[in-house]
Design a protein around this nucleic acid. Sequence first.
DNA 1: GCTTGCTCCTACAGTGACTGTAGATGGCAT
DNA 2: ATGCCATCTACAGTCACTGTAGGAGCAAGC
Lengths: 149, 149
Amino acid sequence: MSPQPGDFTIGEAARASGVKVTTVRFYESRGLLPAPPRSEGNRRLYAQSHVDRLRFIRHARELGFALEDVATLLSLSDEPDQSCAAVDAIARAQRAEVTRRIARLEALGVELDRMIATCAGGTVGECRVIESLSDHAHCAADHPGPAPM
Amino acid sequence: MSPQPGDFTIGEAARASGVKVTTVRFYESRGLLPAPPRSEGNRRLYAQSHVDRLRFIRHARELGFALEDVATLLSLSDEPDQSCAAVDAIARAQRAEVTRRIARLEALGVELDRMIATCAGGTVGECRVIESLSDHAHCAADHPGPAPM
DNA sequence: GCTTGCTCCTACAGTGACTGTAGATGGCAT
DNA sequence: ATGCCATCTACAGTCACTGTAGGAGCAAGC
Ligand SMILES: [Zn+2]
Ligand SMILES: [Zn+2]
Ligand SMILES: [Zn+2]
Ligand SMILES: [Zn+2]
């Protein structure tokens, strides 16, 4: 395929969508972006629809959706006559996840603040931050597990 | 080395510290936990000090410190005569990071709520959630980048 | 003594969502 | 023709683990 007016190189598609060149190729490898036709010199030739799709992916990723969810949302958006209940469910699940993460981080913030406030600025041997880390019994809330943050 | 009373197998150390067996070995491979002596049958034999160290690591991880920071905190705690300024700095940086993450997630939550509220429950073609994802211009705040969440 | 069943061993691959690197071409401008 | 950036493929690295395969150790029950 020879380059047409209106085609984008991968660099142009990257700039137009705000997705990095390497990430565009990565999305293709993950099946989120269809493999475009190539030029005679084997370069990818993107159309506007690819750029639109990249912007969709970017926005969804910025909102924290996992690539798997992005893939589902993309395949749903390709079938406009279906019910949007599945779309809604994914968005609500993401909202709930965001809420959980915030609660988690608020609790960490409180405990970190308590720890930091006890530090009197002396030696490590006297430092209550180290002590707090050593002694789990000092902490008010239970920790659900290693922080995914 | 033959097992002594007071020694822990890796499984016992794991239960006593709340760190999984595989994760204990992983921490050893990362240099966070010193390699313990072995039994005649090549099993790791931990002392109470190892269990204490594991509990320290676990608590620091629960507070979201990266393993590299945990390693620094551990090496600082091994030198009790030094100033605790470095400890304080790491804790404050972690606190700041938690604050940033919360702010980020609050913004995502607001945008997700707006998106979800516009969904009227019709078809995908009419769904404003998909539309919001497609059209970046509809969103109020700038996104700093893909969400690390 | 023998089998069952749990724990433990090493070594390596996989996760998610990319990022970085190496070495080889493509293609445009001077 | 020369320089230089963009692009190509393929693979390793990131982080903090988790999971798997294929053995070996060890206590208890028979
Ligand atoms: Zn201190
Ligand atoms: Zn705590
Ligand atoms: Zn909808
Ligand atoms: Zn937005």
